[in-house]
Design a protein around this nucleic acid. Structure first.
Lengths: 297, 297
DNA sequence: TAAAAATACTCCATAGGTATTTTAT
DNA sequence: ATAAAATACCTATGGAGTATTTTTA
């Protein structure tokens, strides 16, 4: 008789295509996974994978079964989710992804707030760039993500939480620090310091500074705003900071001047996204409201 | 962690609403079912049923979960079905329902034919009236049914197999036996002998003999054509027989005369029906073809 | 008090671990 | 020759059975 355990193991194997690594992924030994798969193949009356050196390939039956198994597991996940959400808003396990330019400034306020307002909520947070978050969200590894909206993804639902305006950070001695409001067009490509490729903040800053040629930027490989700001404070250039980062006071360096742009200020919209067919929409709307309440201003 | 076993047990409990009888239905003891349900409720974090004297009632969460569980189990059944059907056409287990006015004349030819042509097929046959068959088919207890078409059911797919014309069976001495072709309008309500209510053959015969007032029919409570024919042979009246029943030679009684009606002969269409979303359509089309090949003429 | 579900306990089937062998490139 | 999956064997978790108690109408 078919079991969900078998479906879980098999979908992992279908993704990883390697018995050993799939076993590790589901937290069992390789022989245990081999056994379960053998039982499943006996049950279904046909091979699901072709054993090759260097791993496994799915048979045509295997891909069909993998597709259906994924749907079934998603339906089971939804069933559990509805049940949990019935216990009250924002209770039960939620796995949340957050972009790096938001996480360090939002989470210190959001997490205590949620722990207080929703003690039944068990929140797991993962921090990485938008494209990875969207992939993991779509794959069901995350329940919701906090990113810059819109995502323009058919299968995801979105809820804006707050507007995050951009400010210019410049060394106190720099001509940019004297000028108020700041003028994006006066920023040179050689002085603009940005996070490495893949970070949405980089793309947003570039769309604000449209006169800057991305190819002429300095290659920094910086993965955190704190690093960039240290460079700015040391007089190495200027950067754009999201207001929420400034508001936390993390960058109150004496050597640094934070200057707003002219109205209408450039901004990005931070909000929540989740899979459209998720039965926990109510939870996610509540979560978005909590994010708005915790947004540093 | 949720298991399919729990879903299977719970959907049964949700149907029969009684721990003891649900346990019996799934073939385990009552305490075993209680345990599984308790685990499931712990898992989901809420009560699924309210324990009352005289049985159980579903909570609102319970009905939601039951609905989703049924869908999941159906999806699992489909997954298994596709897998089995990949092994070749008409292989694996198939549960087939057949109406009583067809079963005894079709099955003696169909079953050996299938056993020969599709040795991998494991066929379970159930015989009852159309309304019951449709209910069991919809509930997933049957995979396909052989009935008189059309059923006019949104969720079912149909495939006609053969045309079954009606013939008049009368005592050799009766005036009906002298007349050829037979004339439906000359049959009186007091002489027409039919199967009891619920049998589609009864309704079909009545639509052929539109001059007969159903309320004036004799109440026989007969559940088999053989019984009716015995009464006809004994001179108690006349009846309509499907050609397939006549063709098997089961009713070659000396005292009996079988007379065709004028062209175009009245007829019914016998065919197969199955759930539209079933992944075994290929199998059922093949089965319908086998039925056509085995139709007695 | 009678019917039904929950609890207590015992047993065994099976999922899973470790060690090893087989297989395929 | 090497990496990967299958097999062998052992352990332990948990599913299920019987007997019994608790609950509720």
């Amino acid at each position: 008789m078919m079991t969900l355990r078998q479906l879980r193991y098999f979908t992992t194997l279908a993704t990883v295509r390697h018995f050993g690594r799939a076993a590790e992924a589901v937290g069992i030994s390789q022989p245990a996974l081999s056994m379960q798969l053998r039982d499943m193949e006996t049950d279904l009356g046909g091979a699901l994978v072709e054993r090759t050196a260097g791993g496994v390939e799915l048979t045509s039956l295997g891909s069909e079964v993998a597709r259906r198994a994924a749907e079934i597991l998603a339906a089971v996940g939804d069933l559990e989710a509805v049940a949990h959400s019935r216990r009250g808003i924002l209770s039960g396990p939620v796995t949340l992804g957050v972009i790096p330019s938001v996480a360090p400034y939002l989470l210190p306020r959001l997490l205590p707030h949620l722990a207080d307002a929703h003690p039944q909520l068990s929140l797991h947070v993962r921090e990485t760039i938008t494209t990875t978050l969207v992939a993991e969200l779509s794959a069901g590894e995350l329940d919701a993500i906090i990113v810059s909206l819109p995502l323009d993804n058919e299968r995801l639902a979105e809820q804006p939480a707050f507007r995050d305006t951009f400010l210019l950070a410049a060394p106190r001695a720099s001509p940019h620090a004297k000028r108020k409001p700041a003028i994006a067009e006066l920023i040179g490509a050689e002085e603009l310091l940005l996070l490495e490729d893949g970070h949405c903040l980089r793309d947003q800053a570039l769309s604000v500074c449209q006169t800057v040629d991305p190819r002429r930027l300095r290659r920094l490989g910086a993965t955190s705003l704190a690093t960039i700001v240290q460079l700015v404070a040391a007089g190495q250039g200027v950067t754009l900071l999201p207001q929420m980062a400034v508001a936390t006071g993390a960058f109150s360096d004496r050597r640094l001047k934070i200057v707003p742009f002219a109205e209408p200020s450039p901004f990005r919209t931070i909000g929540l996204a989740w899979r459209k067919r998720s039965p926990r929409e109510r939870d996610f709307l509540a979560l978005a409201a909590a994010v708005e309440a915790c947004a540093p201003t």
